[in-house]
Design a protein around this nucleic acid. Structure first.
Lengths: 150, 150
DNA sequence: TTTATATAGTTAATATGTTAAGTTCTTTAG
DNA sequence: CTAAAGAACTTAACATATTAACTATATAAA
């Protein structure tokens, strides 16, 4: 590969990491979204429910980080999830700025109902793609996530 | 790992592929977005310009695929890019439904001005992460993109 | 203690994501 | 040739993404 080609490499969309991640993610979400939609949830709402189910009650900042959702988006999502009674939010006793969140019984119920359905899809992916490859991919993505930029 | 743990594995957000890709992508975009913003572009607008620069004039459907943007979003983005004179769009002579797109001279100029700046960032990532790892990651993501779902 | 600064969330404004419906043009069945 | 079906793009409606400004509380400095 000559100098010119190397300089332009990252401009090729097929070799652009952000676009590659977007494409790959989209291929997967194409299967997941209909399942969530059937139950009336968006992927973001679903991430919030899963995070709360996995780590138990947390404050909004923690959920925002875990679900990879920015604070302004989370605020609106929480408003809807609370209105629909999937979660409850209350001010922290020790820090009046902090909002604690937890699943309601209804929230736990839908979580347990939907998880098996998404599990079927994920298992199918794992089967056709390979468990080891999947492990490597998660590892590599995890390292990218650590990048502090420049 | 027992049966119960295995069943819940994909529910752990740290091992969820869609979330892992989201996180990794965000880590990278955190560095890229300010550069694009400095020039007044969003990442989606930038993807459209890059795709047109890389493959030359294309119809809207092709650009939508290449830039990984859904048609409705692309319509709005094209409206803005055209208004700002970065691209031109005209109806295909052989198929009245199809819209052909191409960069204007101004579009080519901004592309050539910004690409080197993003290149610096990408090279930094490549250096700290490793060229070989990056290649493997792109390969694995490419395979995921092929997945037809189930 | 009073002021300054920082933190956690929310609200606002603009852009994009997502699904459904609508338009216009093409192709195909009859 | 004509009506039906399909394709490419646009518009609409609602949800989320992004950045900035704002509110309330908490902590640190003077």
């Amino acid at each position: 590969m000559n100098e010119q080609e190397n300089k332009l490499k990252h401009t090729e969309t097929s070799k652009s990491l952000p676009i590659a991640m977007l494409r790959a993610r989209e291929a997967i979400m194409l299967s997941f979204r209909p399942v969530l939609a059937k139950h009336g949830f968006t992927e973001q709402q679903w991430r919030v429910l899963r995070v709360l189910g996995e780590k138990g009650p947390s404050d909004a900042g923690q959920v925002a980080f875990d679900a990879c959702i920015l604070a302004p988006s989370l605020s609106r999502i929480l408003g809807k999830l609370e209105k629909d009674k999937y979660i409850s939010r209350f001010i922290d006793a020790n820090d009046g700025r902090r909002i604690n969140l937890s699943l309601t019984t209804l929230g736990e119920e839908v979580l347990e109902k939907i998880v098996p359905e998404t599990g079927i899809i994920y298992n199918s992916l794992q089967k056709s793609y390979g468990e080891e490859k999947l492990r490597v991919l998660l590892e590599l993505l995890g390292e990218i996530s650590q990048w502090k930029g420049r």
